[in-house]
Design a protein around this nucleic acid. Sequence first.
DNA 1: TATATTTATGGAAGCGCTTCCATCTGTTCA
DNA 2: TGAACAGATGGAAGCGCTTCCATAAATATA
Lengths: 345, 345
Amino acid sequence: MSVTIYDLAREAGVGIGTVSRCLNNHPSVSVETRAKVLEVVKRLSYQPHASAQRLASKKTNTISAIIPFFTNYFFIQVLQGVQDKAAEFGFDLILYGVNNTSQAEYYLRRSLHRGHVDGVMFFSMKLPESYVAKFQQIRLPLVLVDAYHPEFDSISVKNLEGATMATRHLLKLGHTNIAMINASLATEPARDRMEGYRIALEEAGIPFRNDRVFISEIGKQDGFNREAGRASMEELLGKNTGRDRVTAVFIASDVQAMGALEGAAELGVRVPDDLAIVSFDDIELAQHAQLTTMRQPMYEMGVLALEKLFARMKNPDGAPSLTTFLPSLIIRRSCGARIPTEQLV
Amino acid sequence: MSVTIYDLAREAGVGIGTVSRCLNNHPSVSVETRAKVLEVVKRLSYQPHASAQRLASKKTNTISAIIPFFTNYFFIQVLQGVQDKAAEFGFDLILYGVNNTSQAEYYLRRSLHRGHVDGVMFFSMKLPESYVAKFQQIRLPLVLVDAYHPEFDSISVKNLEGATMATRHLLKLGHTNIAMINASLATEPARDRMEGYRIALEEAGIPFRNDRVFISEIGKQDGFNREAGRASMEELLGKNTGRDRVTAVFIASDVQAMGALEGAAELGVRVPDDLAIVSFDDIELAQHAQLTTMRQPMYEMGVLALEKLFARMKNPDGAPSLTTFLPSLIIRRSCGARIPTEQLV
DNA sequence: TATATTTATGGAAGCGCTTCCATCTGTTCA
DNA sequence: TGAACAGATGGAAGCGCTTCCATAAATATA
């Protein structure tokens, strides 16, 4: 039916070993033989059989990425980095988009099948402990992105430092009554971002006040959503009277900030004039809504994730590495800072 | 090293054929034997070898999706549909995100390798003619999504009808001077959307006027971008004086509409009071910007794409099918229609 | 010239499965 | 009682490669 290396060998008058060597750019093939074989390859429009290659070579040239759909813009950006790098290395990328942890586990298991993939990337979720041993046992390279585990290569964002930078920015603009709108403290990012907020306040000599932190866990994603942001803002504004009223808010994520903006608008509170806002993530919407926010270098994280994965494939031993990215402050209108127009993105 | 069916066979005291039959749920295995084998499978924590299975069975249980990154929100939505359906069928999805046609061709070629994938989905781009014959020759199932070719199963959106619906909506709101902001007529969607606009006008007895169509091709994507939308809006508003001034615009895409909104705001033109807008696509931003727009059922398109692909795998012969989705009008604020609040999404 | 060394080549073995065919056992029915 | 058949099972062949080993040819070395 289809052309195999046996056909090539017969047609070119050489052995199958030679054909294989030609196809894989082995050095020990004479120039003439190589030319002859390649001519036949072209003439018969030979296509190697991927599965056979994989079985024989014990390499799949494939990696899988387990990534939550709900990360949305993060998803695309980081995937673009991953894909670009994968193409460069000639690897295929199996995408496992998931909506919950049990799906994620299913795909972790699947990725562990022998001869399936050469490496796995796990995004934005906590790695179930039961898989730690399995990956180590099979020695299947695993990289965690926007997540962390001491036993594996990880890439994460400095949430704490980012939050500190965000809060400092508000302080520098002269605000002293700064609230925070946060998501569930069950999540690590929420805890870290609150801690960063606290640190910035305290280094400015402003005491951290628990009643200045507004947390709503309604909706999905532990409160990292629009509705929760809106609810928190409404709660905040509901009691925002008197001399020490809040004039600025640090919000734990852009999506929450979007909801908060709606809530503020509804109640006639102008942003940034009445209330300055800085949030976190820099999703696409942030630009449109003119949110001042902390940008995560998503594309770069994708690229680095693959680089780590390949490095691990080459060198399976060696201590797990951790890289953290420092988010950068993107100044737009929501914080009320004066900005040169060319900086408006 | 790792456990193979030979190990299982030895351990269970049966032949490899029986083991294979057990693993594949073949009917002709006795209950006791099956139990015995499955016990060993569990005990040795056997994992089948994917490549070996593929080589022997001549099936990969994998499909590839070639999809432009720039489609952004469409990308995620449609992919979610694809992924959900793929999981249901137990298939893996190789993602080939591309930024241009030459990349797309590279991945088309790659997908054609024997034993690589069982089917291919090609999104939002014109299929290069040179690949038509290749896919037919290898009989590799191919489904086009948001694209069309007479020789392959296709799924597309009724751009013409959608544009007619959009324009009719503006007509119904009482507008008679309706302009259109379009992208390059080199693209089919742009042509279709203009034709739909024309039809709606003419059925209302309003002559189509070429000077009412504003096209900018600056930037990427044949003018389907923010900058081009903004430029067109500025051009439109620049000459929008006198008695028959334009009071409504149909814009060929949401991203262009986003730019157009910026341009209008800059020039002090209020939307919808001074100018009503209806656009096309319903990307995520559209909701936030309160754009009235024509929604494409993206998730459903993803699901259907996979269903078509599987149908084609089962039945390689049979005429190519074409399914077109009718976009639906999502009414938000930009068109100026009164809307019950609960309908505001 | 004889020997060692390098370069090029052929093809068997092996990767871990699926599947087919042959065989064996037990059951059914006249 | 024996023929006919269905149900289980073992294992060889085959999927299409890579790789290793043996060998042949060409070249260098003494």
